[in-house]
Amino acid sequence: MKFKRAAFAAPLAATLMSVPAVAADYKIDTENAHAAISFRIKHLGFSWLTGRFDKFTGTFSYDEKNPDASKVKVDIDTASVDTNLALRDKHLRAADLLDTDNFPKATFESTSIKTTAPGKAVVTGNLTLHGVTKQISFNAEHVGGGKDPWGGYRDGFTGTTELTLADFGIKRDLGPAAKTVELTLDLEGVRQ
Protein backbone atom coordinates (compact mmCIF):
# COMPACT_ATOMS: atom_id res chain seq x y z
CA MET A 1 0.00 0.00 0.00
CA LYS A 2 2.69 2.37 1.02
CA PHE A 3 4.63 1.65 -2.16
CA LYS A 4 1.56 2.07 -4.24
CA ARG A 5 0.83 5.43 -2.77
CA ALA A 6 4.42 6.50 -3.27
CA ALA A 7 4.32 5.30 -6.84
CA PHE A 8 1.23 7.35 -7.37
CA ALA A 9 2.54 10.38 -5.54
CA ALA A 10 5.87 10.56 -7.32
CA PRO A 11 4.59 11.32 -10.82
CA LEU A 12 2.05 13.72 -9.34
CA ALA A 13 4.81 15.61 -7.58
CA ALA A 14 6.85 15.59 -10.77
CA THR A 15 3.90 16.97 -12.69
CA LEU A 16 3.39 19.71 -10.14
CA MET A 17 7.05 20.63 -10.26
CA SER A 18 7.22 20.69 -14.02
CA VAL A 19 4.36 23.16 -14.12
CA PRO A 20 5.92 26.65 -14.26
CA ALA A 21 6.12 27.17 -10.55
CA VAL A 22 4.04 29.96 -9.10
CA ALA A 23 6.33 32.15 -7.07
CA ALA A 24 5.39 32.61 -3.44
CA ASP A 25 4.56 36.07 -2.23
CA TYR A 26 6.38 37.56 0.71
CA LYS A 27 5.78 40.55 2.87
CA ILE A 28 8.96 42.24 3.99
CA ASP A 29 9.23 41.97 7.75
CA THR A 30 9.51 45.64 8.60
CA GLU A 31 7.10 45.19 11.50
CA ASN A 32 9.72 43.33 13.50
CA ALA A 33 12.59 45.07 11.71
CA HIS A 34 14.17 42.07 10.05
CA ALA A 35 14.88 44.33 7.15
CA ALA A 36 16.90 47.49 6.73
CA ILE A 37 17.63 50.08 4.10
CA SER A 38 21.03 51.50 4.78
CA PHE A 39 23.42 53.71 2.92
CA ARG A 40 26.93 54.92 3.25
CA ILE A 41 28.74 57.84 1.74
CA LYS A 42 32.31 59.01 2.09
CA HIS A 43 32.86 61.89 4.49
CA LEU A 44 35.48 64.18 2.93
CA GLY A 45 36.97 61.02 1.47
CA PHE A 46 38.31 60.19 4.94
CA SER A 47 35.74 57.74 6.26
CA TRP A 48 32.33 56.15 5.64
CA LEU A 49 29.27 57.81 7.06
CA THR A 50 26.37 55.40 7.46
CA GLY A 51 22.66 56.01 7.71
CA ARG A 52 19.33 54.30 7.31
CA PHE A 53 15.79 54.88 6.20
CA ASP A 54 13.86 53.64 9.19
CA LYS A 55 10.39 53.52 7.65
CA PHE A 56 9.62 51.50 4.58
CA THR A 57 7.35 48.71 3.44
CA GLY A 58 7.63 46.21 0.67
CA THR A 59 6.82 42.88 -0.85
CA PHE A 60 8.60 40.40 -3.03
CA SER A 61 7.84 37.18 -4.77
CA TYR A 62 10.39 34.42 -4.86
CA ASP A 63 10.55 31.10 -6.49
CA GLU A 64 13.55 29.02 -5.53
CA LYS A 65 13.25 26.97 -8.72
CA ASN A 66 13.08 29.98 -10.98
CA PRO A 67 14.66 32.93 -9.18
CA ASP A 68 14.67 35.05 -12.35
CA ALA A 69 10.87 35.23 -12.14
CA SER A 70 11.07 36.89 -8.75
CA LYS A 71 9.94 40.45 -8.15
CA VAL A 72 10.55 43.02 -5.47
CA LYS A 73 8.95 46.35 -4.62
CA VAL A 74 9.91 48.66 -1.79
CA ASP A 75 8.36 51.99 -0.70
CA ILE A 76 10.57 54.20 1.42
CA ASP A 77 9.52 57.12 3.64
CA THR A 78 12.38 59.50 2.85
CA ALA A 79 11.76 61.65 5.94
CA SER A 80 12.65 58.65 8.11
CA VAL A 81 16.32 59.15 7.23
CA ASP A 82 18.50 58.56 10.28
CA THR A 83 22.24 59.14 10.52
CA ASN A 84 22.35 59.28 14.30
CA LEU A 85 22.60 63.08 14.37
CA ALA A 86 19.38 65.13 14.41
CA LEU A 87 21.00 68.21 12.87
CA ARG A 88 22.35 66.25 9.93
CA ASP A 89 19.05 64.41 9.47
CA LYS A 90 17.27 67.76 9.38
CA HIS A 91 19.63 68.90 6.66
CA LEU A 92 19.21 65.66 4.71
CA ARG A 93 15.44 66.25 4.69
CA ALA A 94 15.85 69.87 3.59
CA ALA A 95 15.24 71.21 0.10
CA ASP A 96 18.87 71.06 -1.09
CA LEU A 97 19.19 67.33 -0.40
CA LEU A 98 16.32 64.81 -0.18
CA ASP A 99 13.63 67.54 -0.13
CA THR A 100 11.29 65.24 1.74
CA ASP A 101 8.43 67.77 1.77
CA ASN A 102 8.16 67.57 -1.99
CA PHE A 103 9.38 64.00 -2.37
CA PRO A 104 8.19 62.11 0.70
CA LYS A 105 8.42 58.73 -0.99
CA ALA A 106 11.13 56.80 -2.77
CA THR A 107 10.31 53.52 -4.47
CA PHE A 108 12.16 50.68 -6.04
CA GLU A 109 10.42 48.19 -8.28
CA SER A 110 12.30 45.43 -10.05
CA THR A 111 11.88 44.93 -13.77
CA SER A 112 14.24 42.01 -14.37
CA ILE A 113 16.29 39.59 -12.38
CA LYS A 114 19.23 37.68 -13.81
CA THR A 115 20.86 34.89 -11.90
CA THR A 116 24.63 35.12 -12.14
CA ALA A 117 25.61 32.26 -9.86
CA PRO A 118 23.71 29.97 -7.48
CA GLY A 119 22.01 32.27 -4.98
CA LYS A 120 23.33 35.38 -6.69
CA ALA A 121 21.64 37.71 -9.13
CA VAL A 122 21.58 41.14 -10.62
CA VAL A 123 18.27 42.79 -9.75
CA THR A 124 17.45 45.59 -12.17
CA GLY A 125 14.60 47.97 -11.66
CA ASN A 126 13.41 51.53 -11.41
CA LEU A 127 14.35 53.65 -8.47
CA THR A 128 12.33 56.80 -7.93
CA LEU A 129 14.21 59.15 -5.63
CA HIS A 130 13.88 62.93 -5.31
CA GLY A 131 11.18 62.76 -7.99
CA VAL A 132 13.55 61.24 -10.56
CA THR A 133 13.06 57.71 -11.85
CA LYS A 134 16.12 55.90 -13.08
CA GLN A 135 17.04 52.35 -13.84
CA ILE A 136 19.53 50.89 -11.39
CA SER A 137 20.89 47.41 -10.67
CA PHE A 138 21.56 45.75 -7.35
CA ASN A 139 24.04 42.95 -6.86
CA ALA A 140 21.83 40.68 -4.81
CA GLU A 141 22.33 37.52 -2.87
CA HIS A 142 19.95 35.03 -1.31
CA VAL A 143 21.13 34.86 2.29
CA GLY A 144 18.91 32.03 3.46
CA GLY A 145 15.41 30.78 3.86
CA GLY A 146 13.20 28.15 5.41
CA LYS A 147 10.73 27.54 8.16
CA ASP A 148 11.01 29.92 11.06
CA PRO A 149 10.49 28.65 14.64
CA TRP A 150 7.03 30.29 14.88
CA GLY A 151 5.14 28.52 12.11
CA GLY A 152 6.03 30.84 9.24
CA TYR A 153 8.30 30.59 6.24
CA ARG A 154 10.91 33.19 5.48
CA ASP A 155 13.46 34.09 2.85
CA GLY A 156 16.07 36.78 3.10
CA PHE A 157 18.19 38.72 0.66
CA THR A 158 20.79 41.39 0.59
CA GLY A 159 21.54 43.72 -2.29
CA THR A 160 23.89 46.62 -2.86
CA THR A 161 24.09 49.31 -5.49
CA GLU A 162 25.85 52.59 -6.01
CA LEU A 163 23.97 55.77 -6.87
CA THR A 164 25.27 59.05 -8.23
CA LEU A 165 23.38 61.75 -6.34
CA ALA A 166 23.38 64.17 -9.28
CA ASP A 167 21.62 61.54 -11.42
CA PHE A 168 18.64 61.94 -9.12
CA GLY A 169 18.73 65.72 -9.23
CA ILE A 170 20.40 66.08 -5.83
CA LYS A 171 22.78 68.89 -6.65
CA ARG A 172 24.15 69.81 -3.23
CA ASP A 173 27.92 69.64 -3.40
CA LEU A 174 29.15 67.38 -0.63
CA GLY A 175 32.66 67.32 -1.99
CA PRO A 176 34.52 65.33 -4.63
CA ALA A 177 34.59 62.13 -2.58
CA ALA A 178 30.84 62.20 -1.94
CA LYS A 179 29.34 62.20 -5.42
CA THR A 180 28.04 58.68 -4.99
CA VAL A 181 26.35 56.78 -2.23
CA GLU A 182 26.20 53.05 -1.59
CA LEU A 183 22.72 51.76 -0.94
CA THR A 184 22.11 48.38 0.67
CA LEU A 185 18.79 46.61 1.04
CA ASP A 186 18.60 43.82 3.57
CA LEU A 187 15.21 42.23 3.20
CA GLU A 188 13.69 39.34 5.08
CA GLY A 189 10.21 38.42 3.93
CA VAL A 190 7.51 36.29 5.50
CA ARG A 191 5.68 34.08 3.04
CA GLN A 192 2.03 35.07 2.86
Binding site: D54, A79, S80, L87, D89, K90, R93
Partner: peptide, 9 residues
Protein backbone atom coordinates in the same frame (compact mmCIF):
# COMPACT_ATOMS: atom_id res chain seq x y z
CA UNK B 1 11.33 62.86 19.60
CA UNK B 2 12.15 61.20 16.34
CA UNK B 3 12.25 63.74 13.53
CA UNK B 4 11.41 66.66 15.85
CA UNK B 5 14.33 68.66 14.44
CA UNK B 6 12.63 69.23 11.09
CA UNK B 7 9.33 70.82 12.27
CA UNK B 8 11.27 72.68 14.98
CA UNK B 9 13.54 74.09 12.28
Amino acid sequence: ARGLETPAG
